[in-house]
């Protein structure tokens, strides 16, 4: 159950909000969540992306699956509020590898977690958004709680 000020950010989507809202992303595996925060105005966004690069994909799925598209969309939302990229602080969470045996040894599909994190960092830098924190990698899941009043991001692990 969610409290009235809590918003759940599903896979392949993002949510933009302001204090006193709390943005949540649950059960991140290789997915990556990025929190974006403007301290002065107490506004921010949390995105929940699945794959690094829309240019690599041949299918027409939701563009919000991809880190490049989702970051561009979030920054466009900040721009509408007259917030520039250099006034935003970001944190990166997730990008683990839940099935290292299948992905690294059997190579049944590429392990996306690490690539997701690398792409998020590279694109944020390119856009001029400073990354002030991260909790990434490993072989376990994470849940994220982003408080738009304080800018604090809490990461919960179950294992």
């Amino acid at each position: 159950m969610l409290n009235s000020n809590e918003i759940l950010v599903d896979m392949a989507s993002f949510s933009f909000g302001s204090s006193p809202q709390i943005l949540l992303a649950r059960g991140l595996g290789s997915c990556v969540a990025i929190s974006f925060y403007n301290q002065k105005r107490k506004i921010g966004a949390l995105c929940h992306a699945m794959l690094p690069d829309s240019h690599e994909s041949t299918i027409q799925g939701s563009p919000m699956r991809f880190i490049d598209k989702i970051i561009a969309q979030v920054l466009a939302n900040f721009e509408l509020k007259q917030v520039k990229p250099n006034e935003i602080e970001a944190k990166i969470i997730g990008g683990s590898n839940m099935f290292p045996f299948l992905h690294e040894e059997v190579k049944i599909a590429p392990a996306m977690g690490e690539r997701n994190v690398a792409m998020a960092k590279a694109l944020l830098k390119e856009h001029g958004v400073v990354v002030i924190g991260q909790d990434v990698g490993g072989n376990y899941g994470r849940s994220v709680r982003f408080n738009l009043d304080t800018g604090i991001v809490t990461v919960e692990k179950k294992i």
Partner: peptide, 15 residues
Amino acid sequence: DMAQAAMDSILIDFA
């Protein structure tokens, strides 16, 4: 681990 975290990685292989 969390059900969603495992499923998340499985779905990414499709996405």
